[in-house]
Amino acid sequence: MANEGTTNVIFRVRRYDPDRDAAPYYQDFTVPVPPGMVVLEGLWYIKEHMDATLSWRVSCRMGVCGSCGMLINGSPTLACNTQIHDVARDGLLMVAPLPNFDIIRDLVPDLGPLFDRHSHLMPFIVREDHDEMQEPSDQYWQSADDLLEYLQFTYCIKCGCCMAACPTFATDPTYSGPQPLAQAYRYMIDSRDGAFEERKAILAGEAGPWRCHYAGECSAVCPKGVDPARAIQLMKRELVLDYLRLGKLRRRKPAGVLPPEKKRGRREGIPEHPPFTVEGAG
C-alpha cells in the first residue's frame, strides 16, 4: 500500500555469501519508502519481495538489543532506529556490514572479538564477600552521586558501532577498543567494586586505554549516548593519578550493605500497588 509521500530509494547493499563469493560485492534494490520508514524495514521489504537470501542480524527492533548495527551511508549505526529519509542521499542508501569485524555473511559481522575483549576486561563487580553477593541480606549502599559516576556507561548495548568507527581499532587488532574499555571503566569506578588492583594489572598494560588518542568517533556514533571516549579518558586519569599515588581508588573500600540507621520506610505519598491479578503472586 503506497502512502502519501512514498518515494523510491535505491538500497545499495553489500553482499557476501561465504559458500559462493570470493569477495563481497554491492547489489542494488529499489525500495518504496514512505515517511518514517527505518532502514531495517527497508531490509525486510527486500527480503520479502526481492531476495529472501539477504541476511542480517536483528532482534528487538527498538534500539535495545544492539543486534542491528551496520554501516549506513558510511556511518556505523542501528538499522532499527535510523529513518531512511534522514540519511539517504539523492535517493541512494549504502548499507554494509560493520567494518573492523570479519564478515560472516551479507550484513552479519563477527562480533566475537568484541565479546572476547569485553569479558577479558572483567565487566562485573568483584568483591570479597561472596556469601553476601550470593545471598544478599540487603542492598549495597550507594549514593546518587556514586551512581552517576558510571550510569552513563551502563547504557551500552554492545552493538559494536564504536568499534567500527574507531581509527585505532582499524589499524591495530591488539587494541581493546572503545566498547570493552568503557565497560571496564564502568566497573572500575563503581563504588561497590573492590578489585581496583586486579583491574589495574590488566588496564595499565597493553590491553589498556593508551592507544586511544581521542579521535572521539566512538562517542560521535554511539546510538545510546554512552560516550566511550569519555570513559576511556577518565580511566587514563585514574590510572595516572594512581601511578602518582594521588588516586582515590586504591584506598577505596567497596560500599557495604545499607546500615540500619540509614534505612527509611516507604516515602510518603507513594500509593500501594493494585491487587494482584494472579493468585499466589507477591
Binding site: P24, G74, S75, P99, N100, D102, P167, A170
Partner: peptide, 17 residues
Amino acid sequence: RYPNRLGIKGWFGGGRW
C-alpha cells in the same frame, strides 16, 4: 569469514565524520 578491517583507510573516515 571475510576480513573487513579498514586499516589506514579507517584513519580518514568517510568524509562526514
